[in-house]
Design a binder for these strands. Sequence first.
RNA 1: GGGCCGUUAGCUCAGCGGUAGAGCAGUUGACUCUUAAUCAAUUGGUCGAAGGUUCAAUCCCUUCACGGCCCA
Length: 501
Amino acid sequence: MQTPATPEFSDLIAQRQHKFAEYLKRGGERYPNTVAPTATTAELAERYANSDKETLIGTPTPSYTLAGRIMALRLFGKLLFAQLQDGVGRLQISLSVDVSSPEVFALFNDCIDLGDWVAVSGRMGRTNKGELTLQVESFTLLAKCHHPLPDKWHGLEDVEARYRQRYLDMFINPEVSQVFITRSKMISAIRRFLDSNGFLEVETPILQLQAGGATARPFHTHHNALDLPLNLRIAPELFLKRLLVGGLPRVYELSRNFRNEGISTKHNPEFTMLEWYMAYADREQVMALMEAMLRQVVTELQGHAQLPYAEHLIDFAKPFTRLTMRESLLALAGFSEADLATIDTLAAAAKLKKVELPKPLPSYGELFQLCFETLVEPQLIQPTFILDYPIETSPLVRQHPNRPGWVQRAELYIAGREHGEFYSELNDPTDQRARFEAQRTKAQAGDKEAMPFDEDFLHALELGMPPAGGIGLGIDRLAMLLTNQPSIRDVILFPLLRPKS
RNA sequence: GGGCCGUUAGCUCAGCGGUAGAGCAGUUGACUCUUAAUCAAUUGGUCGAAGGUUCAAUCCCUUCACGGCCCA
């Protein structure tokens, strides 16, 4: 048997390249695209699940061609076993000098490394221990893996390496691929739900003159031909509402948004958000529709509505709890009515509860929200809608009819995290203009997150926008829930990292 | 931005002032039924980078880079 590698030939990459050269030297084709698989590992495993060894010997199966990566190799002189992984599963394959030929066996043994893409052809059998095995008669090297693979037992555990080389992470740690398959199915289920409820999926600009629709710092870019500074969108809201003005009654967008902010286990600079707008609906109706959608998506994906997440079991079957923010502070944070009376009593009570108060002290509404975020939010494990938000933090929402200073907004909390927002949308152009003015005042005072004044949006509102309810739902966070992942980076294929020097 | 932790062989990790270690992967040999195969031998290191302290630094100190967790 020829041995292409020699003991002094120690560089792992060079060894693999040497084996590839040897494969070509013995007549193999370089990166062929002439062999197509006729089956997958999953199909064969299912088809022959009940066939015993004798049956497979007595009535030989057709010859199948599988394609995939070699992920394990075990050699016994003139027989070898390998694991072939093809994206839908893994199947054992075997080569022996009897089934193929001494030449084919030697070619495989001398030239194939862990990680190589191969196409293998042969018939199904079972080993003495009963494992279903494709007995290879011939094979083709489809693509060489030029790098040594991570530890076969521990896999790739270095978090940084996993994010930087997701392609490697995915085939070394198959559960990672499963996360992204689940994410994809989740998005399909959401589309199906909305499409069947009369919504139209639309695409609105990512390049925007003014980044509106949320309070966040945008990324800046530039269009050369127009010599025009532009921003990447932070939210699609203002364009989707323009479509209501245009006459589309139900629209949604799965929107990649960009926010020039910090990175954490909950934030990635680019992230995906679902927004939908529904004419003639109010906050209550969009909340009810979201509840129905989440119940259906969770059930569709895992067969029932109870979702394990970290140490919790989250129940989507029960009606979601509804509390006003005020009620939640009284019930869950231990505030009294007197504490909530004025900004001073609230600040004093908050200080006692170890809420870190910013200086200078913010408005009553902002302080109220800060207390909520610090004291209540972590307790909201089961799906809970929190109703009514201070007007200062919600410049696009309809005012509450009988609570001055508050707006008809709700947020959905699950597992202690905010997952979505629900609005009775503001369609009064006069009120909207005043809200933009207030934001402009904030911006002039140095608030870099204040929403820009959008005159064209006001023009659209002045033409008349039907009353509407709208929602925003964090798709990445929902994916974290559905795949039981602790960090947003675990549900984003290629999270942003600093370049490695 | 702040605090804590990490960075040692391709991978997973020990070592923590005195010549750099293991398992897996790789290489060589044995082996026709393995399942993290086994047995024997063996290659492989700028110990993240740069300074400093020391007779001597992977180890102690400083700065920097990248990452993780927590906080903002």
